[in-house]
C-alpha cells in the first residue's frame, strides 16, 4: 500500500506517495523528478547514487524511501549556490577535467562535499579513502582527486582571507 511520506529535499518540503519497497534512489529519480542521482549498480557497490541524508553521505539505493520520512536530503541538484553559480566543487570538476562520461560525477561530488564538510583540509590519502566507495571507470581518479584537493585549498584560502 502506498503511503504519503514527507521529507525535505534540497531545502524544499516534499510530500511523496510511495510504495514501502521503493528505494530512496528510485523515489528521487521518479517521484521526485531529480534524475541527477544515478543508478550504477543498485546494491551499494558503486556510489553513483550518493546523496547526503541528515548531513551524512549514503547510498540512496540502500535506503528505503519510507525511512527518509522527516529527513533532510541533499542531492546534486541542490548543490549550486545560485542558478548561475556552481558550487566550488562543481567548478573544480569542470576546471580539472574530472568528469568524463559524467555518470559517477554527481555521486562523487556529493561524497566530496560530505568529505570536505567533515574534514576541510584532507590529505591526498584521506581523499582516496573518502571516495573509495565511488567507482569511476573513465578517469583513473587522478583528476578527481586533484579537483577535490584544489577545492579544499581554495575554501581554506577563502576562509583565512
Amino acid at each position: 500500500m502506498s503511503q504519503i511520506v514527507s521529507m525535505t529535499i534540497n531545502g524544499e518540503e516534499r510530500e511523496l506517495a510511495l510504495e514501502p519497497y521503493r528505494s530512496l534512489l528510485d523515489t528521487l529519480r521518479n517521484e521526485g523528478g531529480l534524475t541527477g542521482t544515478k543508478k550504477g549498480c543498485d546494491v551499494g557497490d558503486c556510489g553513483a547514487c550518493t546523496i547526503i541524508m541528515n548531513g551524512k553521505p549514503v547510498n540512496s539505493c540502500l535506503v528505503l524511501a519510507v525511512e527518509a520520512a522527516g529527513a533532510m536530503i541533499e542531492t546534486i541538484e541542490g548543490l549550486q549556490l545560485a542558478p548561475d553559480k556552481p558550487h566550488p566543487l562543481q567548478e573544480a570538476f569542470m576546471r580539472y577535467g574530472s568528469a568524463q562520461c559524467g555518470f559517477c560525477t554527481p555521486g562523487i561530488i556529493m561524497m566530496a562535499k560530505a568529505l570536505l564538510d567533515e574534514n576541510p583540509n584532507p590529505t591526498e590519502d584521506e581523499v582516496r579513502f573518502g571516495i573509495a566507495g565511488n567507482i569511476c571507470r573513465c578517469t583513473g581518479y587522478t583528476k578527481i582527486i586533484e579537483a577535490i584537493l584544489a577545492t579544499a585549498a581554495d575554501l581554506q584560502r577563502a576562509k583565512s582571507a
Binding site: G36, E77, Q90, F93, M94, G102, T105, P106
Partner: peptide, 19 residues
C-alpha cells in the same frame, strides 16, 4: 578550454537515456 558538456554533468542536469 572549458568542456562544453561538463556543466550539465557536474550539476546533474545532463540527460542520459535512463533519465
Amino acid at each position: 578550454v572549458k568542456r562544453s558538456d561538463t556543466l550539465e554533468k557536474v550539476t546533474g542536469t545532463a540527460c542520459y537515456a535512463g533519465d
